[in-house]
């Protein structure tokens, strides 16, 4: 099942991971983008870096969880996907999973990610420290909290 960091807590992942070979997606299961296309009532979807999130933005109200699956930490498309979803009004859980670095979690968070699937490579204490590595930022805020620390105005 694995663990997830969410809003400061470590929780057991309540969702079953996406599996393209699944015939149907179980309840509390994450669907792949194709599975979601076949059954848009699914409430959790996994998006790979090379997939287009714009389809999802049609039915964001339905979705409770989007998992951004990062296969290679050098591939920065997930950052744009995250902002894309948040800007389109997605308010559910936006989770990063896969091969990301501790050094990227604050960037991901600032793009709108609010949960991280933990892997053996990442120490929880180090990750939490990394989330507050920078107390200031030049870019405009995505939410109120960062508004206070933004330099931009």
């Amino acid at each position: 099942m694995g663990k997830v960091w969410k809003d400061g807590d470590i929780i057991e992942n309540p969702w079953t991971a996406a599996d393209a070979n699944n015939e149907g997606v179980p309840s509390r299961g994450v669907g792949t983008l194709d599975q979601w296309r076949a059954d848009p009532t699914l409430t959790a979807v996994e998006i790979k870096s090379d997939e287009d999130v714009s389809d999802l933005t049609q039915s964001l109200d339905q979705l409770r969880l989007v998992v951004l699956k990062i296969e290679d930490f050098n591939d920065g498309r997930s950052f744009s996907q995250a902002r894309h979803l948040r800007e389109a009004g997605f308010t559910g859980e936006l989770r990063a999973a896969g091969n990301f670095l501790q050094d990227q979690v604050q960037y991901l968070q600032r793009c709108g990610v609010d949960a991280f699937e933990l892997s053996a490579d990442i120490k929880i204490s180090a990750m939490e420290a990394a989330l507050s590595e920078f107390s200031v930022s030049y870019q405009m805020p995505l939410d109120e909290r960062s508004a206070e620390i933004s330099l931009a105005r």
């Binding site: 950052f79 990227q104 960037y107 991901l108 030049y138």
Partner: peptide
């Protein structure tokens, strides 16, 4: 410079 410095979205471009 300010906008691009540690821009969270664009640190891992192609």
């Amino acid at each position: 410079r300010q906008w691009s410095t540690l821009h969270p979205e664009f640190a891992f471009l192609p």
